[in-house]
């Protein structure tokens, strides 16, 4: 420090030194500096709109090119005759079966049966998983007691429950829903719990400083803050529900159950009709991709973008 200051003296309590300055020095920045800073700082925020051809080249073209290449290789392998035709039908055979399945209404029926089952199962899982997550968050005892089991269930393939479900409920919808629930509920409960755990403690302090009561803090601060983690859990929960449903449908074949995509796949296996097997797999894949793209991706992207948590590239 420069030695120009006077030697400080410890003063008795209550003594206050007084400083009066004549010079004010340079002027303070003023309103226009502030407005300039604001403008400079926020100029680049607006997201450039993506042009249609840009979307075409970067989002639509790559998967189309890849699929075309895949079909080409498939055709080549088929033409080379490495496998007998019943094991590896040609792309045109499969296309024909696919078209038949779509036109005779079996595809629509199977999709409707599976998607409505998946929807009901997922809705049930949503309610149960959310309640379970809330209970686990509210009670540390419950969390300690069943937390490890819930996490463990998440990594247990739920197809393992199919035999048990059939013994309990025979070949009924209840058996299928049991398997779907056991697949989806743990993910949803864990997702909500993770969401809660990731809420910065600062947010709760903000709520307290602002004078929000306990319930108000939960409703207005905690729940919205936990939303991204919860959505992640829902998305994973749906993926597990769909997988479990297909596994259950594949194993529990019975006329009373209606014909879902999994059952369609099983018919293909029983008839040794490879083109129907591939058709069913393609339909299962398409439904999974469609629900991901139409429901979960926009939901998650919307939430993250509103909070500035994604980098749009």
């Amino acid at each position: 420090m420069p030695g120009e200051s006077s030697t400080p003296v410890r003063l008795p309590a209550g003594h206050v030194e007084t400083h009066t300055g004549q010079q004010q020095g340079r002027a303070t920045p003023g309103r226009s500096v502030e407005a300039g800073l604001d403008a400079l700082d926020t100029a680049s925020v607006a997201r450039p709109r993506r042009r249609p051809w840009h979307v075409l080249v970067h989002s639509v073209l790559p998967p189309v090119v890849f699929l075309a290449a895949l079909v080409g290789v498939w055709q080549l392998v088929h033409a080379a005759g490495l496998k007998p035709s019943y094991a590896l039908p040609s792309p045109t055979d499969v296309a024909t079966t696919f078209w038949e399945t779509v036109t005779d209404g079996r595809a629509a029926e199977a999709i409707w049966t599976s998607v409505s089952r998946g929807g009901v199962g997922f809705a049930l899982s949503l309610v149960i998983g959310t309640l379970l997550g809330l209970a686990m968050w509210a009670s540390t005892w419950l969390r300690a007691a069943i937390g490890p089991i819930v996490s463990g269930l998440q990594s247990l393939p739920s197809v393992a429950w199919v035999p048990a479900a059939i013994i309990w409920f025979q070949l009924t919808d209840a058996a299928i829903y049991t398997v779907v629930l056991l697949g989806a509920v743990p993910s949803i409960a864990n997702g909500l719990l993770t969401g809660f755990k990731q809420v910065p403690p600062l947010f709760d302090r903000v709520g307290r400083v602002l004078g929000l009561g306990g319930l108000g803090r939960i409703r207005l601060v905690l729940l919205p803050a936990a939303l991204p983690g919860y959505l992640g859990g829902l998305r994973q929960g749906w993926a597990f529900a769909w997988r479990s449903l297909m596994a259950a449908e594949l194993i529990t074949y019975s006329p009373s159950l209606g014909q879902g995509l999994g059952q369609l796949l099983n018919i293909g296996r029983e008839l040794s009709q490879m083109s129907l097997v591939i058709t069913s797999i393609t339909l299962i894949l398409l439904v999974g991709v469609a629900i991901e793209l139409l429901v979960f991706a926009p939901l998650e992207r919307g939430v993250l973008r509103r909070r500035g948590l994604t980098v749009d590239r």
Binding site: M1, T18, H19, G21, G25, R26, T28
Partner: peptide
């Protein structure tokens, strides 16, 4: 310890008055 600052507002942070007391 405490100091009363009797420089009038608005003060600039680089003004000599602010500087002198800040040094102390």
């Amino acid at each position: 310890r405490e100091w009363a600052v009797e420089l009038s507002q608005p003060r600039a942070i680089e003004s000599p008055g602010v500087g002198a007391l800040a040094t102390e």
